[in-house]
Nucleic acid binder design. Structure first.
Lengths: 362, 362
DNA sequence: TATTAGCACTCGAAGGGCGAGAGTGCCAAC
DNA sequence: GTTGGCACTCTCGCCCTTCGAGTGCTAATA
C-alpha cells in the first residue's frame, strides 16, 4: 500500500511533533508545522484515513493523534530524515570517547556511560567474546615465596596474577613449571584443563606443593572470564525524564527488568542493518513483555580480538530515533576504528609505535 | 534531657511502625504494638510531649505522628535493637561475596551490586588508593615485534601490557631496557617520571625507537590509574520501590545526583563508628541539598594494599536502619577479611597456598 | 471529485463541594 | 498521673460540573 505524498508529510509531522511534545497532535498544529496548502478539515480527513490504515491512533475520541508502533516503523524506515550530526556533536562524541577510553577499566561500562550521557537516554552496553586459549605462559620468579603468572591469550590480551607461597620454592621449580605449562596447557580451551592433566603434570615435574593446581586454576579462571559476557546499565536516571515513565510503577518495572536481564542479549546481531550498523526495535517488536511499550536502538561494534560489542539505548516509543540512531552509529563506528582492526593507534599514546592491548587492572 | 522509659518505648514504636508502613502512626496503633499498661489517651499525652521535644512531628493537625530527623537520630543511637542477622542472612551474604569476588572484574562494582541486592536499597561503592610506585619491572620478549611489560606495584598488584612494534627489536635490547627501568624507575611516584629521566635513559641504553617512552608512559598510566578513585552506583531501581520517591521529579533529582556526584566521596572516614564500622547520616545531616530528606548508611572496609573502600546505601529517612546497618557491617568486615590482611585465603582457591592479588582483565 | 467552512458533539482535565473516617486535643473525673 | 469521652480538624476519595481542545459530519464550493 502506497501512501500519498501528503499523507507521508502529515504522518511525519505527527511523529516529529509527538516526539517533541509527548502530547497528541491535532490538525491545526500540523498545519502550522508543515506547510500544506489545505485547510485543517482536509488534514482531518487524511488523519482519519491514516488511523484507518493503522499508522495513527487517538487516545480518546476527541483527542489528537499519536503514532502507533507501525507508524513509528514507517517513520524510521522511510520518512525520517537521516540526521547529520553537527560538527559540535561529532566533536563531543570523539572527545567523550577519547576521555573514556584513556581511563582504564572496563570498556563496556565506559561505553555505556558515554552513550547514556550523549543521548540522554538510558543506555546499555554488552560484549561477548568467543572462546579463547592461552598461547603462552611466563612465570616470573620474584623471591622464594613469590612468583607472578603471566598468560598471553589467543585474543592477544594478557592476564597476570601474583602468587604468595607459605613455603619456599626454588627458581628451578618455577622454570620447570613454566615449561610444563607451555608444553601441555597452551592452545587448549578451558574444558580441556582437567584434574587428570593437572595430576599428570604434577608427577612429571615433581610438584608436591600444588603449584600446578594454582597455575591451572588461574588459567581456567582467566579463560572462563574471557568467555563470559559483560553487560552494563547506565543513565537509569534518564528514564525518569520521560513523561511516559511518570508512573513510578512502570518506571520501576522497566528499570528492574533492565538491571536484571540486559535485553541486548537477546538481540540477533545478524539483523543489524549493515549500512549504518544500527537496529531499531519499536514497542511491541520487542520480545520481552516489559519492553512492549518502549523502544530500543542498538548498534554493534567490533572490539577486536574476537569480541563483538553492542551498545543500546532504551526509551519510550516516542523516542528521537533520528538523532539517537545517528549518535549510536557514530559511537559504534568510532569504537570499532579504535578497538577493532588495530589499524589506527589508540589515542593518547606514542604514535611512533603501534601499541595494542589494554592495560589491565584488578 | 533524659527520656522516661515509657517515652523511649513509644518513640521506638513510632519509628518501627513508620519504617514498616510509611504512614503516620496513631496512638491506638502504638498500644497494639508495644504493651504499655495505659490507655490511648496517655499515649496521646506522651506523643504531644515528644512532639514538643522535637522527636516527632505531625504532618497535619489530625494525623498520626512521624519521626523527625532528631527522632531517627535518637532511635539509631539509643533505641533500636542492634539486629542480629539470622543464619540464613549471614549465609546469603557470604554466598554473595564468594560468588561476586570469584567473578573477575572490578571489586567496586561487584560490591555495589551485592549491597544493593542484599539490602533492597540503592547502593554505592567507592574505593580510593594511596599513591604507589612500581617495585619491579619485567619485560617479556615474545617475538621480534612483540613484548610484554609486567609491572609489580608497591601495593602488590600487578599490571601488564602487550606491545606490538612495527619494527624488529632484539632480545638484548629488551633486556637492557628492563634493567634500566629496574635501576631508575622503581620506587618513584608517577610525578618523578619526567621527560628528562626518559631522555637520559634512552641515551644510556642506546634506544632510538622510543621504547623507553612506551614503557614509561605505561608506568605513568598505571600509577595514575592506581591513584584514581573508583565509584559505582547500583540498584537504582530500588529507589522507586519506596513510596517517598513516588514523585518522579524527586526520584529523578536524587538519582541524577547520585550518578553524577557519588556522595560517599564527601564522607569523612574518621567519623565512622569504630565498634561496628558503620556510620548513619540522617536526612538533614547530609551536607548535599539533594540528600536532605534521604538517609545514607556507610560502612568502610579495608581492601588491603593501601586501599580504603566505602560501601553505602541510600534510602528515605524512613529506612530500616537496624537491618541495613547490620548487613553493611557484615559485608564490610567480610570484605576486609578477604581483601585486607590477607590472613585468610580467598575463597574458591587452593587452600594449601596463600594466593594474593587479583586477576586482571582488560 | 477533492476541498472547505461550519457546527454539534465527545471526552478528558481541572476545580469545587460533600461525606466518611481516622486521629487529635482537651476536659472533667478518678 | 491516668482515663474515658466528646467535639474538632484535616485528608482522602467521590461525584458533579465546567471548560476547552479537537473531532466527525454535512452541506456548500471550486
Amino acid at each position: 500500500m502506497e501512501l500519498s505524498e501528503r499523507k507521508k508529510k502529515i504522518l511525519a509531522a505527527v511523529v516529529d511533533e509527538y516526539i517533541k511534545t509527548a502530547e497528541p497532535v491535532g490538525s491545526k498544529t500540523i498545519l502550522q508545522t508543515c506547510d500544506l496548502n489545505c485547510s485543517s478539515a482536509t488534514v482531518r480527513n487524511e488523519l482519519a484515513e491514516l488511523v484507518g490504515m493503522g499508522f495513527l491512533e487517538q487516545p480518546h475520541t476527541s483527542a489528537g493523534r499519536i503514532p502507533t508502533a507501525l507508524g513509528y516503523r514507517i517513520y524510521v524506515n522511510e520518512l525520517m530524515e537521516r540526521q547529520k550530526l553537527s560538527i559540535e556533536e561529532t566533536e563531543e562524541i570523539n572527545r567523550g570517547l577519547n576521555e573514556k577510553l584513556r581511563q582504564l577499566g572496563t570498556v563496556v561500562s565506559n561505553v555505556g556511560t558515554l552513550a547514556a550521557n550523549l543521548t540522554n537516554y538510558t543506555a546499555m552496553a554488552f560484549s561477548a567474546t568467543m572462546a579463547c586459549t592461552v598461547t603462552r605462559y611466563d612465570l616470573i620468579y620474584v623471591d622464594a615465596n613469590t612468583f607472578i603468572i603471566v598468560a598471553m591469550l589467543s585474543n592477544n590480551s594478557v592476564k597476570n596474577k601474583l602468587v604468595n607461597l607459605p613455603i619456599s620454592v626454588g627458581q628451578d621449580m618455577i622454570v620447570r613449571l613454566s615449561s610444563a605449562f607451555n608444553a601441555n596447557f597452551t592452545n587448549i580451551t578451558e574444558e580441556k584443563i582437567t584434574p587428570l592433566l593437572i595430576r599428570a603434570t604434577e608427577r612429571a615435574i615433581d610438584d608436591t606443593m600444588g603449584l600446578t593446581g594454582v597455575v591451572a586454576s588461574f588459567a581456567i579462571e582467566v579463560l572462563t572470564s574471557e568467555k563470559a559476557t559483560q553487560s552494563y546499565l547506565a543513565g537509569a536516571n534518564h528514564l525518569l525524564n520521560q513523561p511516559e515513565y511518570r508512573d513510578p510503577g512502570k518506571a520501576h518495572a522497566l528499570m528492574s527488568y533492565l538491571s536484571d536481564n540486559p535485553p541486548l542479549q537477546s538481540i540477533d546481531v545478524s539483523e543489524i542493518s549493515p549500512d549504518d550498523g544500527v537496529r531499531v526495535l519499536i514497542g511491541p517488536e520487542n520480545v520481552a513483555e516489559e519492553l512492549k511499550d518502549s523502544s530500543v536502538i542498538v548498534a554493534s561494534y567490533d572490539a577486536g580480538d574476537n569480541t563483538k560489542g553492542l551498545i543500546g539505548v532504551v526509551g519510550p516509543t516516542r523516542m528521537d530515533y533520528s538523532k539517537v540512531a545517528a549518535k549510536l552509529s557514530l559511537i559504534a563506528s568510532a569504537l570499532s576504528a579504535r578497538l577493532g582492526g588495530g589499524s589506527e593507534p589508540p589515542p593518547g599514546l606514542h604514535n611512533k609505535l603501534i601499541v595494542k592491548g589494554d592495560i589491565h587492572e584488578p
